[in-house]
């Protein structure tokens, strides 16, 4: 742990980041910017895992490995999402969520 910084300060940062991501997910209309908001949310959860690991159980590594696996899953998620976005762009010529109302035509 870091001398002089309580665990709460880390948790406040990650909480605010999580809800900034939620807010962005609601107010944005573009698929790529929504994907970026999801990245923010995943990242804040990662900070939580790492901080709990370091402050509460410093002799174990569970939070560390969970963060590693979340990073890997985020990479898989982004690659599939971007393939879908490019496919949607080919069919509709834009990636605004509100105008994409059909899955197939």
């Amino acid at each position: 742990m870091i001398q002089g910084i309580p665990i709460y300060h880390f948790l406040v940062v990650s909480t605010l980041m999580f809800f900034i991501g939620i807010c962005g997910f609601i107010i944005r209309h573009n698929l790529i910017t929504m994907l970026m908001s999801v990245e923010l949310i995943l990242n804040s959860v990662n900070i939580n895992f790492v901080v709990f690991n370091r402050y509460l159980f410093p002799d174990q590594l569970q939070g560390h490995f969970f963060t590693l696996f979340i990073v890997g899953i985020a990479a898989a998620e982004v690659s599939v999402a971007i393939a879908l976005i490019i496919n949607i762009y080919r069919r509709f010529n834009h990636i605004e969520v509100e105008k994409v109302s059909q899955l197939r035509f």
Partner: peptide, 19 residues
């Protein structure tokens, strides 16, 4: 390496392809 190097580059590529 993965987030800042990989995922952001992927996102920037897809931005350049779609808008």
């Amino acid at each position: 390496a993965i987030y800042a190097g990989g995922i952001v580059i992927l996102i920037i590529f897809s931005i350049l392809l779609t808008s």
